[in-house]
Design a protein around this nucleic acid. Sequence first.
DNA 1: TGATATTCATACCGTTTCGCACAAAATAGC
DNA 2: GCTATTTTGTGCGAAACGGTATGAATATCA
Lengths: 202, 202
Amino acid sequence: MVQKETRLRGRPRSFDPDEVLDKARAVFWNLGYAATSLDDLATATGLNRPSLYAAFGDKHALYMAALDRSRTEATTALGAALATEAPLRAVLQTIFDRTVDIYRRGEEGQRGCFLVGTAVTQAVDDPQARALLAAFISETDGLFRARFERDAASLAPGVTPAGAAPMASGTFHTLAVRARTGASEADLKAIAHAAVTMICAA
Amino acid sequence: MVQKETRLRGRPRSFDPDEVLDKARAVFWNLGYAATSLDDLATATGLNRPSLYAAFGDKHALYMAALDRSRTEATTALGAALATEAPLRAVLQTIFDRTVDIYRRGEEGQRGCFLVGTAVTQAVDDPQARALLAAFISETDGLFRARFERDAASLAPGVTPAGAAPMASGTFHTLAVRARTGASEADLKAIAHAAVTMICAA
DNA sequence: TGATATTCATACCGTTTCGCACAAAATAGC
DNA sequence: GCTATTTTGTGCGAAACGGTATGAATATCA
């Protein structure tokens, strides 16, 4: 275990918290929070419970850390993609096509989007998950809206940036729901194409 | 307990399975399948476990019965609404506005759509829930598509029935996700309006 | 080298979970 | 009135649950 910094005394950690968080997220991604047990997480991460608790706190904190990671990754990637200097139609088509590819991943079946796929069910009874998902949706809306405002001439007639932004985010949502439900690549790509067609001018 | 039909001998049931199913659905709707315990269900329905088992089989069967009820109710209502003889724009606006009102209901917070709100999380690991949700989405797509084909002249330029149908279903999905996450009536109604604007000709 | 601090491994805890067993209650049939 | 059948009410069992306690292992510090 190579430490890049002076470390405090004591036995060194045998794992990288970032890797462990990714592995835990993969289990939560398939099963959702409530159906994922500590045994599931211990098995997937190769860690015993006390190690998981020491690193993350408890099951809920681990789940929230995983949600937050997905949120950060998704908004960072979307921001970069929307900053691309290219025609809006092409930018959107690329974003949605890549999204389809990501949402169709999964060893146990297509798992869609971690946030929509699991935090939606949590939302009624778990205020932290609800707030994080709401923030994610709001950020997504905002990123789309800003790009649409910069490129308003590229929107279809009668379509405003304020109206188009949640529809673009909504395309993520329906792709996520459908992908997790087993929809084919062709069907999802057709929906992506339809969304671009309806948002952008011909 | 008034029986409308000749009944077999034995002690009569003290409950109406339809009412019990509704009460159970309300709990599942808030918590999702995995986080709902048999104690939760027994408390909500006022029945003991053996009675629940005798009537529905087991927890999963009860959940599936509740999902199927929501699916039937939703597709029946959508079919009727889409059969309305009125301009497409008005029909769609009414459907989405009513949907917003339904998705904003809930005593513990807005609970959105039972199918999207809970079956999506189940989908990876529960083939029955996944199949039911997939069927629901397919039926919704089909109903929209049929109406759009009958009214193709009312779609926005360049928008086809095949393209518009999943976008309309997708509007349900994003409304469901957002409602369950706490979005305001005004925001949801604005999204409904934007969807209609993008699907229908001016 | 011994003291101190941190992490890992093992075992354990109290509680909850789902589903079942069985006797009592309530009806219909003869 | 007795028998057969279905439902209810109570209790139960085995397993699973999230989390904790404790000693051993592994490092740094003095």
